[in-house]
């Protein structure tokens, strides 16, 4: 599916920045969300995230922003990549801006402390979104950023989720 020209990546840590780089390599317009404005500025001005993915440049189609609402209005495909202990807080914030048409694929490992809930359960509890999926595989951020061949899996109950994640991320070095 190529419905959206734009993809939102929520979280500009090591793995989030790497996935944004893959999307940039695929020439997809990408909005990368970081909570800190100074990090957004650095990414937009230098094309680099020196703290979380040093030594790798992001493509020109990637733009960093701290404006969640803008991301949600610009795209209906979101890739959530925040640490598991901040997922609930971020999802709750996200919940103010998403609607039933949005698709969220998360790429966060681990379960929530205390509740032992999966990230998809947390997203379900904090947002109205139903089309939720997970991306996971034997992937290392540095290897992927260096375009070393890798494979990953996307799982969801909704066909649309993996079709759209595949269309966005799949390329000749990253098989989805």
């Amino acid at each position: 599916m190529t419905r959206d020209e734009c993809i939102g990546v929520i979280g500009a840590g090591n793995w989030g920045t790497t996935l944004a780089k893959v999307l940039g390599d695929n020439d997809k317009r990408t909005l990368l969300w970081a909570r800190r404005d100074d990090l957004c500025r650095e990414i937009n001005e230098t094309r680099q995230n020196s703290k979380y993915l040093p030594g790798f440049s992001l493509g020109p189609s990637v733009e960093a922003t701290s404006d969640l609402e803008r991301i949600c209005k610009s795209t209906s495909l979101l890739i959530a990549v925040v640490p598991s202990h901040t997922m609930r807080e971020t999802a709750r914030e996200l919940g103010n801006h998403v609607n039933g048409e949005h698709v969220i694929v998360h790429a966060t490992k681990g379960i929530e402390q205390g509740t032992f809930k999966r990230m998809s359960e947390v997203l379900r509890e904090e947002t109205c979104v139903r089309k939720i999926g997970v991306i996971s595989g034997p992937n290392l951020a540095k290897e992927l950023a260096a375009r070393q061949p890798a494979g990953t899996l996307v799982a969801s109950r909704y066909d649309e989720v993996f079709e759209r994640a595949h269309a966005a991320l799949h390329n000749d070095y990253f098989r989805v």
């Binding site: 039933g100 947002t127 109205c128």
Partner: peptide
């Protein structure tokens, strides 16, 4: 939604 926020069902 689960937090009581209004959602457009048509979406």
């Amino acid at each position: 939604d689960p937090r009581g926020r209004v959602v457009d069902a048509a979406s």
